[in-house]
Nucleic acid binder design. Structure first.
Lengths: 206, 206
DNA sequence: TATAAAATCGACCGATGGTCGAAAAGGAGA
DNA sequence: TCTCCTTTTCGACCATCGGTCGATTTTATA
């Protein structure tokens, strides 16, 4: 049961890369097994279906991103930067993705949606904790913290996902964030410059 | 060119219903042509591809919904109700959809996304007009109106799409809407009861 | 009625996700 | 080492799907 688990992880890694570069829909099982050098039967010995494999790949991704996010949360950055950092850590699109996947964005809808859903579940508690910290420090003042950060996350995802966002979008987003969390007007303005560049910049560790 | 257009409309209607009930991905071209009683070649005489047909189906849907939304806009409802009504009119999920599609929600991601995108483009101008009206009446007070209603729309879509939204979600949403548009605190509270029941209720005209 | 154009047909295709029975590979005990 | 059982691997095969294409019928036109 040790040998098998190794192989499974290996397959997940391969699929992970291919899904990011080519997209889920555009990566066939045949391509995966060719890359891995195994037979069809072996693949289906480890995974019930292609979609179930996607689920596991996503779990892998989220796990990594959550780790980064937790580091941000326990860092000594100021609260606003923590929130921004956590949101950046969970950015579904990373280096590799941006180029290729920007085009495939549409036909990759299934993966995209699943990631978004899973990401939400993982990110909300961490963001909520950061926001509570802001409340304690008197920087924020709001109730219903989880619901509020949820809205923040929704808007952040949906608005900055595509590249077509304007300065006005950013300005309104910041205004909304301030009011949503009960922060002082203008206290988040300094973020403005950062938002276009929030791409995850953690170096490749492979 | 008259006869052909009739057939095309007929095919669009059939596909429209099937996409709503069974979902786009789960409806095969073979099923559509069987339902329509035509051959494969005929289908591809009218549509370049299945996806292109989806595009036309969506255009059809949005067109109908936009008509309803425009009626709401030119009605004598108060501004807040207009905004709510417009958002309701563009609800991607309608009667038929709710039951079946709630389950298929996930695997129907492609259609769902395309609808969302198209809907956004159609709804924002109408919502903006309503919001401007609110500004003129002194009920709202905000700049960047299109960007603000865009956020409203994003959140509305994403939050109330699934059935898993709580009272807290609604409360925070209303709070956000007020602050986003610069409305008086509590002035939108009376909506609370309506939001769960915003399902499009226009009678079947078939 | 002759002829071109519009519309319909269905056999066929390549690719895809998935199945299945059989055969290696790998111990564990005798 | 031989036996027996489990784990793992193999690849031929399958059904379905979106899409193509040349042939044929229907319709309009002159």
């Amino acid at each position: 049961m040790k040998k098998g688990e190794k192989r499974k992880q290996e397959l997940l890694k391969i699929a992970y890369k291919m899904f990011l570069t080519k997209g889920y829909e555009n990566t066939s099982v045949d391509e995966i097994i060719e890359e891995a050098g195994i037979a069809k039967g072996t693949y289906y010995y480890y995974f019930e279906s292609k979609e179930q494999m996607l689920e596991e790949v996503i779990e892998m991704m989220i796990g990594q991103e959550a780790e980064v996010a937790r580091q941000v949360l326990s860092s000594n950055l100021d609260v606003v930067q923590k929130i921004l950092g956590i949101m950046a850590a969970f950015r579904p699109t990373q280096e590799e993705t941006t180029i290729e996947n920007a085009l495939h964005q549409q036909e990759n809808a299934l993966m995209h949606n699943k990631v978004k859903k899973r990401l939400m579940a993982a990110a909300i508690p961490l963001l909520a904790e950061a926001a509570e910290e802001g409340n304690r420090q008197g920087i924020f003042c709001c109730d219903h913290v989880p619901e509020r950060v949820k809205l923040l996350l929704i808007v952040g995802n949906e608005l900055f996902d595509e590249e077509n966002f304007t300065e006005s979008d950013v300005a309104v987003f910041i205004d909304m964030a301030e009011k949503l969390l009960g922060a002082k007007a203008g206290s988040m303005d300094y973020i403005k410059g950062l938002i276009g560049q929030t791409r995850c910049k953690n170096g490749e560790k492979e």
